[in-house]
Simulated assay, not measured.
Amino acid sequence: MDNTYISVIEALIFAADDPLPSKEIINAIKEIDGPDIEITEEDIEKTVDDLNEKYKQNGNAFVILKIANGYIYATRPEHAKYVGYLSTEKSKRRLSQAALETLAIIAYKQPITKPEIELIRGVNSDYTLNTLLEKNLITIQGRADTIGRPLLYVTTDEFLKYFGLRNISDLPKPREIEEIMKDEDFQEQKRRIMMNEVEENLEEETNSENESDVDNESPFE
């Protein structure tokens, strides 16, 4: 591969809003410079490795990650707590405890049916599944060969992107999850999320009460 394409690959990944697959990088280059250009997926991977090594040596705050079968820029893990402090997730991106529980079950047991999910959780999961489908974190992958032929649910590439995973095999093992749960930074983030949820619930209750007061006011007073 011509070394002049190193910066081209860097630019394409930088400009992408979503993880950019190697095939799309190759297609873009060949569409512009001709189909005879010799460049492979291995060339892309080596270029990304070389760029990351350069970023590391220069002390840059970012790296190129391979997640959801593509490449994307991200800040270094050691800066996560600082970036996280400044960034506040919008409500549409925030997942409730019920949604996280359901998503975890699907991620580890997929493909899985709604009855199986509800058997594990012990509660109805209609609303939670609809929420996860709307957020494109899960999708339907056919039907099970059982009585009633219930729908089968699996995670999506958006799920991988949301949690910063290269593929589903990168999910933490049960023992790793226990270690994460004990981590002080995790406990602090959990506390903040719970406080945010409490504040949101209080705000919703206050708004509901105000709306109720307005509805109950007599138009003749």
Rank of each mutant, 00 (worst) to 15 (best):
T4L: 10
Y5E: 03
I6F: 12
S7F: 08
V8T: 11
V8G: 03
V8I: 12
A15M: 06
S22M: 04
E24A: 09
N27A: 14
I29K: 07
D33P: 01
G34M: 08
E38R: 09
D43C: 02
E45Y: 12
D49I: 10
N52Q: 10
K56V: 06
Q57S: 12
F62G: 00
I64S: 05
G70M: 02
G70F: 05
G70L: 08
Y71F: 15
R76P: 03
E78V: 05
E78T: 10
K81Q: 10
G84K: 10
L86F: 15
T88D: 11
E89Q: 14
R94V: 10
Q97E: 14
A99Y: 06
L100R: 13
I106S: 00
K109C: 12
R121D: 04
Y127F: 09
N130G: 07
L133K: 03
E134I: 05
I138Q: 07
Q141A: 13
G142I: 00
R143F: 07
D145N: 12
P150T: 02
T155K: 03
E158C: 09
F159W: 04
F163C: 01
R166F: 08
N167S: 11
K173V: 03
E176W: 00
M181C: 01
D185R: 09
Q189T: 09
M195F: 01
E197Q: 13
L202Y: 12
E203D: 14
T206I: 12
E209R: 13
E209H: 14
N210C: 11
E211Q: 13
S212H: 13
S218L: 15
E221Y: 12
